[in-house]
Design a binder for these strands. Structure first.
Lengths: 351, 351
DNA sequence: ACCATCAGGTCATGATCTGACCTAATGGCC
DNA sequence: GGCCATTAGGTCAGATCATGACCTGATGGT
């Protein structure tokens, strides 16, 4: 409790509170002399954590932004908040940081005390997921298990339910998690099939790491047997995995072939659409047209389109048209009920 | 670089990677003898960080969940992912952890290196906010500035735009941030007005901490002048602030008086609605009715209602009815355009 | 002008850390 | 069952380091 490293950690934790700490107060809190505090501050600075000091009678120390991230010392509630936030984000993650987000979540959940874990899952259950209905909501626990196994180079076993409904048990050497828009895929070497495969994470059931470690094989670049000439050893493989996924997706049937016309300029629409849906082409004066393929759920696509906040018109696919029709009718009926008792099946009516 | 505390931090950071580390490898990485590694592991355990060891030929060390949160050592991408996730969540935060979420964000942004900060704001801009249109989107920077000032007991100056449009400059002693559903409020002592006020955060402009520290005053409990008999000194004031906000809200006009009937059982609807919107009462067979007041934005409420995924009917307020009408018409038109070239103003038509 | 704060030097003492030995126990693999 | 790699921990000598007590200076707000 009273040795130097512990004190340094405590000091770091105190300094992370966004306020100024006079040296005397720190000395009192940590039960050492002010001189030692000054020395500790020096040490932190040597370690690369920039402690800023303001002199004068209301001066004090404060940790500011530096070149590297200092260790984050979170209290219970903050840890829970981050875990909940990341889990909520895991489904429809912010583009560009999906993988990192899952890595961070895995890191956090690895060390999250069990009482906090209970609070997290309780809050998680109380939260209404934004996308639902097509049954492909992703279990964050599955995601973190896969992510841990991939970075920890541990073999995985899981049950897989493929697109046509057949079930199988797999044992794989996980390579990397990749997300496209709303969906997650695992690129892995299937030990049983003796080949590389991509798995949709929402079709993975009950994954667990066997504990057996493996040395990662090089991901085939194009054809089998081409040279994956010595990588830097660090993780330059994320792009590879994404490319591999893209190639294997090309062979699969994309689930939705979008064709939408917007009554708004292309840049307006682009700014309001997720990037992986593609970019619309100008079409006519003041309009644009989006043709793209995606594997996202119907509800989610419909929601994104509605949020673009301009008139639009869907050419295809038919399921999307049908869904929008249904949703539009439901909303119109909801609005039409105003002023009198609601009744099912009341037709639309306008004032 | 090579002294003990730094090595311990590095060790912690290595152990947080979700994989097993043999002692020898750690010794090599940290450039000390294996014996020292064992001693360091012991030290970490003494500090309360439970390091689990598996013996045997494929054994190794791994940090597991313990009683307290260990310092989180994030790499750049993970830090960015968390920051982006929390900022995205700041607008429509998960219920129950809003304040903690903002505290965590403030803590993180305080030490986030500037190059990462740029990446965060770039990603933030690329993201389409889920709610827009009523101009009340919240700037996460404002939120974290206020949170930092509140926990750091620093005075704040900002420009305020009140409900009727009048602008004023305020200097306050911030007490606490409170969120209700989608909106954020600051409970603070207004130095100029010499009284307690609540401010809507989205109406706060250009806040900055003056640097002047203050000693927090007790928040009046009911009437002015009642005794707030010595609190525990710690932060038991979160509930107080919420209660204070609720009292001062009661005097204000709530913005939306919802009255919605759902064609689904009350428990079905409750599970799919955010809690702060209130709970619906059973109404007729298999239906229920929700009467509640809220200060959320129109678009957001409409979205939540649509996501309940059952037929419903809105009695009021009129703005909501009008908005749903417009949205429903837009979606119906979007669906009706299928199969032929879209044309503006084409009336709805069904097959 | 005064005071509180940060910044840093020096010194003696005592604690602590490290590496090099050693032995014991455990679990997986052949 | 035997072998091997791993964790676990004891002991010892020497070097290193941390601490508190003193000091002087600089800075900035009141």
């Amino acid at each position: 409790m009273s040795d130097t490293p512990a004190r340094l950690l405590k000091l770091l934790s105190l300094l992370q509170t966004p306020r100024e700490w006079p040296g005397g107060e720190l000395a009192e809190r940590l039960d050492v002399s002010p001189r030692t505090i000054r020395r500790d501050i020096d040490r932190l600075r040597d370690l690369g954590y920039p402690v800023e000091a303001s002199r004068g009678s209301v001066g004090g120390y404060r940790l500011v932004a530096g070149a590297a991230m200092p260790p984050l010392l979170l209290d219970d509630e903050e840890a829970v908040a981050i875990a909940v936030g990341l889990r909520a984000g895991a489904g429809h993650a912010i583009e560009g940081v999906e993988e990192a987000s899952v890595r961070a979540l895995a890191k956090l959940e690895q060390v999250l005390p069990s009482r906090l874990r209970r609070r997290v899952s309780a809050l998680q259950n109380a939260t209404v997921p934004l996308t639902r209905g097509d049954g492909s909501t992703i279990d964050p626990r599955t995601l973190t298990t896969l992510a841990s196994a991939a970075t920890g180079r541990e073999r995985l076993r899981f049950a897989y339910r493929s697109g046509d409904g057949t079930r199988s048990k797999r044992q794989v050497e996980p390579y990397r998690l990749v997300s496209t828009g709303q969906r997650w895929y695992l690129v892995a070497y299937d030990v049983g099939r003796e080949d590389w495969r991509t798995f949709r994470v929402d079709r993975v059931g009950e994954p667990y790491a066997t504990g057996a470690r493996f040395t990662p094989r090089p991901l085939p670049v194009e054809g089998p047997g081409s040279d994956a000439s010595g990588g830097t050893g660090s993780d330059a493989g994320s792009g590879d995995a994404a490319a591999f996924l893209a190639r294997s997706m090309r062979r699969m049937q994309p689930e939705l072939r979008l064709d939408v016309r917007f009554d708004a300029p292309a840049e307006f629409v682009t700014a309001r659409l997720p990037a992986h849906l593609g970019t619309p082409e100008p079409d006519g004066e003041g309009g644009c047209r989006l043709r793209a393929s995606c594997a996202d759920s119907l509800e989610w696509v419909a929601l994104r389109l509605a949020l673009v906040d301009c008139a639009f018109s869907v050419q295809g696919p038919p399921q999307l048209v049908a869904y929008l029709e249904g949703l539009g009718a439901r909303l119109t009926r909801a609005a039409a009920g105003a002023g009198r008792e609601p009744r099912q099946g009341a037709g639309p009516e306008q004032g």
